[in-house]
Design a binder for these strands. Structure first.
Length: 744
DNA sequence: AGGAGGAAGCTTTTT
DNA sequence: GCTTCCTCCT
């Protein structure tokens, strides 16, 4: 049980060093599991510093998901997975769920595919398969969900694909169904170490148990259980929303009765003031094991508080302070971090930083790999690696445009269903498909030929070469370069960058091979790297979000780091700005009504506060625009929970009240009826009210100018108004809640 | 089949 | 306010 800043990673790495030096454990016998790639990379780096590159590369130091992929590539064939199976990310699985729901003829209004996808994910985290779930389904919703779950899983399996949750769940199934596999890994990994144990969900917990083996487990009669060492901090559990259970760490001693618990309470990171502030916040959570973190770093300076009028001024203040601190030589930019609750909040900071010329780096945010053009090329690569990958195949079927439209796709799908074969197989037999246009069939045949042509070059090419071949031979690149759209220029640049990513991957892969001399222990330990294959490349992309890639190093003072609080976990900075401390922003609006969720937000605040080493700023904005409309948020309750003696306010809120509300019930209820708006129904706390409109009212729109209300329909947030903006613009149907209009 | 235009959705957090 | 998805028209 290790508090914030008490040296968790150090404990793990030094235990590993101890095992090797004092107990003669070989690196190949060690499995060190982390939750994020960032943590895995850091641990690997430290192990390398302590024990050298060979040890670092031989032992498995990786995330849950990466470890499971390795096991599945090797053993998944027993459950019908090809060794080159595709990994579906959440966007892919949502698309597949969409296809499944359509196939089942489910009304997307009543049974939203996105929600189904999320629920299936939750079920998998609980290791509940579709049969079990179907057995306990109570109502209509659950029964439909069970059906969708089953078909989804069938389609996924047919496509030779696994989604993120499958990686864990299927590995658990594998270990439970095949005792010889379980035994193999138990013999292999005599020491299992788990970082951030408080973030494990049920599936991950079970996985650990299966890997370690237990004494009462009959399977393990031949192998004594491995040694298990976990570190965690219940106060830093911030992933309950995706199934993590604090239970796992709280009841570790019950799960493993011979366990010994060691408490680490000394913090080596922060000043006592920062710690005291963080402690007094986290103390508000009920039912937690009290912990007394202390520091020898001295009192330090008080937290600095600031209340800005709006989010732009908050950002300007932060930028100004960073400017001042760097000018005075107190810090370099790389020693400063700015945290916020949601990615959307990064924008204002970016604006100000660009204007003031401060170097910065946003971690996370708009993902490179989520861009359309990147996903398109990725889909080609995936189909080349795994021709049955239906979701990817259907994505590129008509990209770039080649005359295979919805009609043709549907015909192929029907044909596949009738023939009880897969979409990929059916494509190759287009000519037999009934009801397909000649022209479309020809296009499909050309497409299949194109895929074959590309597939032929894969064995003799590096990933980067394949990427380039795809870009050129499919005509994807020429379609973009021929376009007049400015956006397409950026797309071309992104694709160039993607080729670079592939090249860089090849280089780092080569470097790894050099460092690692061939191993002759008899056990084929680390998969022999050899030449990097397309499958290797795809795996890397699927498992490594670019969030992890760059916490900055300083060359010329470095850059300021901007990130969400979740991304900040595990990091530390001399100077931290914790921004957007407003009820409704942080804690987030959607958590305000739920005690459990609110406590998780508080832990998130605790994580944020404890990242700071010396200087900690807490700030908020009195007004912040969300969805284009301003909202007036009160100070975050977490600020109130910090005793005032720890905070020095540079500027306090002038209790800025919302302006008099515009027009709710303000005397024009009389214009007949017709479902006129009723004010209320605000989803966003104290957001400014949408104008209450009636037919005949005059309004002013920020871009369309003056107009007259012709029709009002719907109610609450969904109220729409038809407004006539005159001859130039004409009539518009606008959502009253979101439209930038004022009543005149 | 392809494109334009409009409506809906979005802002939790990640492997 | 911005982006993606859907629908309708050509």
């Amino acid at each position: 049980m290790a508090g914030a800043g008490s040296g968790k990673t150090r404990v793990l790495t030094h235990r590993i060093a101890h095992l090797m030096a004092e107990r003669g454990v070989r690196p190949g016998e060690i499995l060190a599991i982390t939750f994020t790639n960032k943590a895995a990379a850091e641990m690997k780096e430290r192990i390398q510093a302590l024990l050298g590159a060979r040890a670092a590369n031989t032992m498995w130091t990786m995330t849950f998901h990466a470890a499971c992929v390795r096991i599945l590539r090797r053993e998944g064939h027993r459950l019908g997975y090809p060794s080159s199976f595709t990994i579906y990310d959440s966007a892919d699985s949502q698309r597949l769920m969409q296809l499944v729901c359509k196939e089942l003829d489910l009304d997307p209004k009543r049974y939203p595919p996105r929600s189904f996808s999320a629920q299936v994910s939750n079920l998998k985290n609980e290791l509940i398969d579709y049969d079990t779930f179907a057995g306990q389904a109570q109502n209509d919703q659950e029964k439909k969900l069970a059906e969708a779950y089953r078909l989804y899983q069938t389609r996924l399996h047919q496509a030779g694909a696994a989604d993120f949750d499958d990686l864990i769940m299927v590995t658990v199934n594998l270990l439970q169904m095949f005792p010889d596999v379980a035994e193999y890994y138990r013999r292999r990994f005599r020491h299992v170490l788990v970082d951030e144990y408080q973030d494990t969900n049920h599936a991950q917990y079970t996985l650990v148990r299966e890997l370690v083996g237990t004494t009462e487990d009959p399977d393990s009669s031949t192998v004594t259980p491995s040694e298990l060492c976990v570190v965690g901090d219940a106060d830093q559990s911030i992933y309950a929303f995706r199934g993590a259970t604090i239970r796992n760490i709280l009841e570790f001693e019950r799960d493993f009765p011979s366990a010994r618990t060691i408490l680490l309470e000394q913090n080596y990171r922060s000043t006592q003031t920062i710690l005291s502030a963080a402690n007094s916040v986290i103390e508000r959570n009920e039912g937690r094991t009290p912990k007394n973190l202390w520091s020898q770093q001295g009192e330090g300076t008080p937290l600095v508080g600031y209340v800005a009028d709006n989010e732009h001024e908050e950002a300007a203040y932060v930028a100004g302070e960073i400017d001042r601190l760097t000018d005075e030589g107190v810090v370099t930019p790389s020693q400063v971090a700015i945290f916020y609750r949601t990615n959307a909040q990064s924008r204002v900071f970016e604006d100000v930083f660009i204007r003031t010329g401060l170097p910065y780096k946003i971690v996370g945010g708009v993902r490179f790999y989520e861009r359309k053009e990147i996903r398109d090329v990725l889909a080609y690569l995936r189909v080349l690696a795994n021709p049955e990958d239906t979701v990817s195949l259907r994505r590129i079927l008509n990209v770039p445009k080649r005359g295979i439209g919805a009609r043709a796709e549907e015909a192929v799908e029907l044909f596949a269903a009738r023939e009880r074969t897969t979409f990929a197989q059916a494509l190759r037999r287009v000519d037999e498909a009934p009801g397909i246009a000649k022209r479309s069939a020809n296009a499909v045949r050309d497409f299949v030929a194109l895929l074959d042509e590309l597939a032929a070059i894969v064995p003799d090419s590096t990933p980067a070469e394949v990427v380039e071949a795809v870009l050129h031979r499919t005509g994807y690149l020429s379609e973009l370069t021929g376009s007049k759209d400015i956006q397409d220029e950026t797309r071309v640049e992104n694709l160039e960058e993607f080729v670079d990513v592939a090249r860089e991957f090849e280089n780092t892969f080569a470097a790894l091979v050099e460092e690692e001399p061939p191993e002759d222990d008899g056990e084929e330990t680390v998969t022999d790297p050899g030449e990097p294959t397309l499958v290797d490349f795809l795996e890397r992309i699927a498992l490594v979000a670019d969030t992890d890639q760059i916490p900055e190093e300083d060359d010329e003072g470095g850059v300021v780091t901007l990130m969400t609080l979740h991304a900040a976990k595990g990091l530390e900075f001399p100077v931290v700005f914790l921004t957007g401390l407003e009820d409704g922003v942080f804690p987030h609006n959607r958590t305000l009504g739920d005690k459990q969720q609110l406590e998780e937000e508080r832990r998130l605040a605790y994580v944020g506060l404890t990242r700071a080493q010396r200087l900690l700023y807490v700030s908020r904005a009195a007004v912040r625009s969300a969805w284009g409309t301003p909202s007036y948020n009160p100070a975050s309750r977490f600020i109130d929970e910090i005793p005032s003696q720890y905070v020095e306010w540079k500027r306090e809120g002038a209790a800025l009240a919302p302006p008099p509300s515009r027009g709710i019930g303000g005397g024009f209820g009389s214009s007949g009826f017709g479902g006129g708006p009723r004010g209320g129904g605000r989803s966003r706390g104290s957001a400014s009210p949408a104008p209450s409109l009636s037919v005949g009212d005059l309004v002013n729109h920020d871009s369309f100018g003056m107009g007259r209300v012709e029709l009002v329909e719907g109610g609450g947030d969904k109220t729409k108004a038809r407004i006539d903006f005159g001859a130039d613009i004409g009539e518009k149907d606008l959502m009253v809640k979101y439209a930038p209009i004022q009543k005149l």
